[in-house]
Computed example of a mutant assay.
Amino acid sequence: MSPQGFDAFLRGLRAAADPSRLRLLAICAQGEWTVSELVDILGQSQPRISRHLRILADAGLLDRFREGSWVFYRRAQSGEGARIARTICRLLPAGEPQLVRDRERLEAVRAARRAEAERYFDSRAAGWDSERDLGVDGARVEALLVERFARERPRALLDIGTGTGRLLEVLASHVGTATGIDISHDMLKIARARLDRLELRNCEVRHADMYRLPFADGSFDAVTIHQVLHFADDPEAVLREAVRVLEPGGRLVVVDLLRHDREEMRRERRHRRLGFEPEEMSAWFAALGLDEEEPIRFDGEQLSVAVWWARRDRLAEVGSERLARGRRAA
């Protein structure tokens, strides 16, 4: 270890040497959280939580990033601080009563958030196709996907967050079989009716949670996530689960907004993230053993969308080790 690395290691240990900060580090390993959410989970005052977060972030154990009026915290993703944070989290006793209670409160906050999202999607199901494009010409994005899938013709496609099944309709003739999953029962009712009306017998939809996909490892050779990640409270966890069900050499396609400052999207459309920076997506892909291609950008009048392409590492053992490390670290 270099002298700089040793100093960073000591800073990290000092920063974590507090019961509340250890609890925060464990929670922030489970996704991205705002200060108000962390206050609810730990049951401490906002000034106290903010002080602990600042110490952890200054030591490089947490990432802090602002989007509009919201500030998110998560366990550090890169650098010496990230390695130290992962090591500390692995050493925490999973059965410690306080950590168990924190996880229970974390799941309660997460469940409430997701239930609210499900109610929102149920209420918007009928007009979802027109809303989903978000000011960018969806036909251009669909044409790009059709061109690529017609060339590659995957055996089995999984569409995560399929909504009303529009992407299944678009890609049905270019894949062997296609499965769409969604958390909204009302969305799925529309999707099933659509698939039946169009007699797309190679397509099906299922009710499922994108964080816990009901499929075995390597079940699909293509996975799409179309305008979904900005709703996720833990985008990396969604990607990790997508990669788990993707076979080595399989294709992952993510379509989502590029970073923007339209704060009203949170109030009016329940967006949690205001889009993504290409560098952020690249870091996630690299951590999950994905070989990324150059993303393709589509600009609308006010918002821009990117299509990210990647393949899972063909060395299945390497990919499995990376995913296992990600699950253990979480």
Rank of each mutant, 00 (worst) to 15 (best):
V228Y: 08
A115K: 11
D102E: 13
A59G: 04
G31L: 05
E263W: 04
L252W: 01
T162R: 03
L171D: 13
E268H: 13
A94V: 09
A324K: 13
M210H: 08
I84C: 01
W70R: 14
R14D: 13
R322W: 14
V141L: 13
Q98R: 12
A232V: 02
A16Q: 07
D182W: 08
R266E: 09
Y120T: 09
D234C: 09
V109C: 13
E169K: 09
L195V: 05
S78F: 03
D63G: 00
W128A: 11
E96F: 07
I55E: 07
E241F: 06
G289P: 06
G68P: 04
A76D: 06
L61E: 02
R105W: 09
A283E: 15
Y73I: 03
L303S: 09
R11V: 01
D217Q: 14
R51Q: 13
L257M: 13
R148V: 13
L22F: 08
P19N: 11
D217I: 01
G79Y: 10
Y73A: 01
V245S: 06
A283H: 04
L246K: 01
F149E: 04
A287T: 04
R311G: 13
W308K: 01
L145M: 08
F149N: 04
F9V: 05
R312H: 07
G12N: 10
G275D: 05
Q46W: 04
D186M: 07
H260Y: 03
F215L: 03
L288K: 02
R327F: 15
E199S: 14
E131S: 12
E118L: 08
A242G: 12
D233C: 06
G95T: 04
S219N: 02
D299A: 15
A156F: 08
S282V: 00
D182I: 11
L106H: 11
P47S: 11
K189D: 15
I41R: 02
P248S: 07
E147F: 07
R21Y: 10
I183P: 00
D209A: 03
V146N: 00
D7S: 13
A29P: 02
L229D: 11
C203A: 15
A178H: 05
A17K: 12
T224N: 05
E107Y: 10
R192N: 10
R151L: 13
R201E: 14
G161A: 10
V39I: 05
A139I: 06
V71M: 11
I160Q: 07
L288C: 01
L158Q: 12
D233E: 10
P3F: 10
S50L: 04
V100H: 01
A193C: 06
G289H: 01
E317P: 00
A172F: 02
T34H: 07
S50W: 00
L25C: 03
F285K: 00
I41L: 08
L171Q: 12
I41P: 04
G60K: 04
A108S: 14
A139P: 00
L134T: 00
G176Y: 07
A59Y: 03
G218F: 03
F72M: 00
A310W: 07
I88H: 05
C28A: 12
H230F: 14
R206D: 09
R311I: 02
